[in-house]
Design a protein around this nucleic acid. Structure first.
Lengths: 204, 204, 204, 204
DNA sequence: GATGAATGAGAGTTCATTCAT
DNA sequence: GATGAATGAACTCTCATTCAT
């Protein structure tokens, strides 16, 4: 009988190798042979697990999305107030990628790729951001109902929340020493919430 | 009797064509022939004005930097308070690129390229962001001295200001209909300043 | 206790599968995996029975030759006149492949392959055609002696006989509906023999 | 001003080089680099004149068709009887390719390729043969009307004419010494016409 | 004996750059 | 100065074959 291989595990292994190389060199500068070398396999072997370079890209994106969604789902399930959920999502999003910078590095690579590569409609950053904003909008609405958030805040606050998180990564990836990313996470929440929350809530 | 050509003007023309194509297709997907066609010149002619594709990239980056710096210098020279300078820089930065989206599209392309291409150390986003943060830090310090800004704000506020502007563009480029970018600019300032300024200032 | 396998039978099975795929896709477009799938075995198993793709080609050719030779031998052994033997060989050659088009499809594939692939000298269409011509020449000579065929026919008649059979298949494979292949067989013999045979024989 | 090149002439040059290599090695075994070497150009240069390997195939086929069609048109235009036209088409078809064997060698390569490659529907041998048969059918019909051809010949005679020409090439390409191709052309016509023509015509 | 996971040589194709005109 | 024809390095992907299990 032939060699038994856990196809899924090996696929994951290759994906991890690819992520490492993508983070190091960028998607466009990454050649199939680089991924193969990182994974300690032959060039042809990659094609036993992925149909093309683009499929690796998509798999990596899905990988990112899954991590992200699971994290958010967990937070949403916790018995905390809507405002605390917003705070936790921001804090933990930053924390998780702070400890796994590779995937955030490739995130922006994919962002660019999605902008120009028409073959990969599955990689829909438009929807991703829209979903994040909708999430923020819903939680803030709940928080308003609960009196945690001022009624007169701008409709663009969700966009601002997304912006500040994304923009933080943008700076941090380029220059990890620019600030303490974990302290930054706290400061983001504190600074923004000060302008959003009702007096009572912001003191809490 | 050689043809008289305004070298600098033609170089600028080619640069503008390149910017257009970069915005449309992305730096990596842009071929020299695409730039040549957009500029209505021969492929070889580009090389009379630029040594390589990378040099166009750098020239485009310098172009961006010059616009950006001039704009900021103008604002800094105005007889307004430090806090108003911060506000104006944020508002006008967003406004200017809102009316010229092309250059902001390529900005992130360059961001990515600078991350991976070791040949282009002149394109230093690390320094760019550091400069922006330093500018913010200085203006905020002045504003604190002037009593416009609360003394206890986080040292990371400059990073947050940069983040929110960059993150706004990130969303807007992907999805120009996600929000009204000009309204967004106002809301960013209002929302952030509410948490930063002293009561007196924020009422102003 | 090794599994008992009829090596020869399995080899034949694989060969039949290969013939089917060759007929469908052509030798060059046929991948080893296609043959394996058609034979319902693993890709590696083929190599237990054939050293290489080329060896399958050769085996298929031998298969063709054996069928062809057996058929001719049978006809030659029959107690009929030389001219009738020629007629029967032409008729039955066409009939047999008319009912088994697969093998004739691959015949021309092999013809091409033999022309360009220097590794397969065993696949000698030069000799095959020469043999056919020699067979025709001998039978026609006998027929001449027997007074069945005119003495002044061209020495190239054997080549013409081979040509018309091969050329018929060439058209028929490309377009099976171009003519009724069985009727065509009859018409070939009738048309050609009318010019070759003595009055007496052609009336027969 | 740039190098002036007669694009059409260079394309033709490359095509001729390709034909040579196709004849020598077969279409499938021919690599782009082989064509480039034969044409004394760089590999990339081919792509300035042909989009792909397949496009060269099609151009070569068109080249064949043009030669063939022109030749036939010339013959049809001559002031000779229908039967003589048939004779001339057969004779000259064989003669022309006898003096230019390269193109006939590749003809069968293309025949095979057209059978299996679905991308090249422009290369329609089905139509080619059908056209040849139709041409023969029409000329023979005219010849019948003119009393040159017996009224009771088989409807399949056109197919037989095509078959014998194609089958002759098939043998000749494999083994150019098997027979004198020019003598063969004469013998084909003589042998076939003896069975087809009326006594008067055949004596002529 | 049977298998399919692994492989790398080699294919067609692209494109930044050169340079003769 | 302007050009585009020419180029080959380098890319992604294929597939016959090997071999550990």
């Amino acid at each position: 009988m032939p060699k038994i291989v856990d196809k899924a595990a090996k696929r994951e292994e290759i994906l991890q190798a690819a992520l490492k190389v993508f983070a190091r060199q960028g998607y466009n500068y990454t050649k199939m042979i680089d991924i193969a070398r990182e994974a300690n396999i032959g060039k042809g072997t990659i094609y036993e697990y992925f149909r093309s370079k683009e499929e690796i890209l998509l798999a990596a994106y899905d990988h990112y999305m899954q991590i992200s969604n699971e994290r958010i789902a967990t937070i949403l399930a916790r018995p905390i107030t809507p405002l605390e959920k917003v705070r936790e999502i921001i804090l933990q999003t930053i924390r998780i990628y702070a400890s796994d910078p590779e995937i955030m590095r490739v995130f922006f690579d994919f962002w660019i790729e999605s902008t120009h590569n028409k073959n990969i409609t599955e990689m829909d950053f438009r929807k991703l951001y829209a979903d994040y904003r909708a999430l923020g909008r819903n939680l803030l609405e709940e928080a308003k109902q609960a009196g945690q958030v001022r009624k007169d805040i701008s409709e663009n606050v969700p966009s601002i929340l997304v912006a500040v998180v994304e923009g933080t990564f943008l700076q941090w990836i380029i220059d990890p020493d620019a600030f303490d990313i974990l302290k930054m996470a706290e400061d983001i929440v504190d600074t923004l919430f000060r302008g959003l929350t009702t007096a009572a809530a912001s003191e809490a």
